[in-house]
């Protein structure tokens, strides 16, 4: 049952843009938010988009060399969490950090917020290798200009 997609897309090939921007401000520190962070970053990078992630606030500890042993789920999802985690294992869904590594392999970049790093006493050497650099908010806003920006 081959779909006639070749005809449908053939005429559009020449006019398509190849790169566009996908920027994420990652502020949360709970597991339910890290899963979509990984999925959307990896998907956007696979689509050939320029992906930049700005990690700040409660997200920062997960990107250090001494991360929390397990990311918590928010109280309202706690009852569903075991079923969700089991389902993810059964369906070979990669852990969020593996998805971010895949995104980075496809060109994504991750930047830690300089202000929040200072507040939490985190220096460049405290972050793991997922983090490309520590930058200020203005730098990230500049990177994200003229693209889509998501706040997680």
């Amino acid at each position: 049952m081959a779909l006639p997609v070749a005809e449908k897309y053939g005429s559009e090939i020449e006019s398509k843009e190849t790169t566009s921007k996908f920027s994420i401000v990652m502020f949360s520190g709970t597991a339910d938010k890290f899963i979509p962070l990984g999925v959307m970053s990896q998907a956007a990078a696979a689509m050939g988009m320029e992906v930049n992630i700005f990690i700040t606030g409660f997200a920062l500890p997960a990107f250090t060399k001494n991360p929390p042993a397990e990311l918590p789920f928010p109280a309202e999802f706690a009852a569903m969490a075991p079923m969700l985690m089991q389902g993810m294992m059964a369906h070979n869904v990669a852990p969020w950090d593996v998805m971010l590594r895949q995104a980075k392999e496809l060109g994504a970049h991750i930047y830690a917020c300089s202000m929040m790093s200072e507040v939490m006493g985190l220096k460049r050497e405290d972050f793991n290798d997922l983090v490309d650099d520590i930058v200020g908010a203005a730098t990230f806003v500049q990177m994200a200009e003229h693209g889509e920006t998501f706040f997680i």
Binding site: V5, A6, Y9, G10, I13, T18, A46, M47
Partner: peptide
């Protein structure tokens, strides 16, 4: 289909 449209490549068959 989204990937092919985005990257400008051609789907021969699905």
């Amino acid at each position: 289909q989204a990937w092919a449209a985005k990257t400008g490549n051609r789907i021969v068959s699905i």
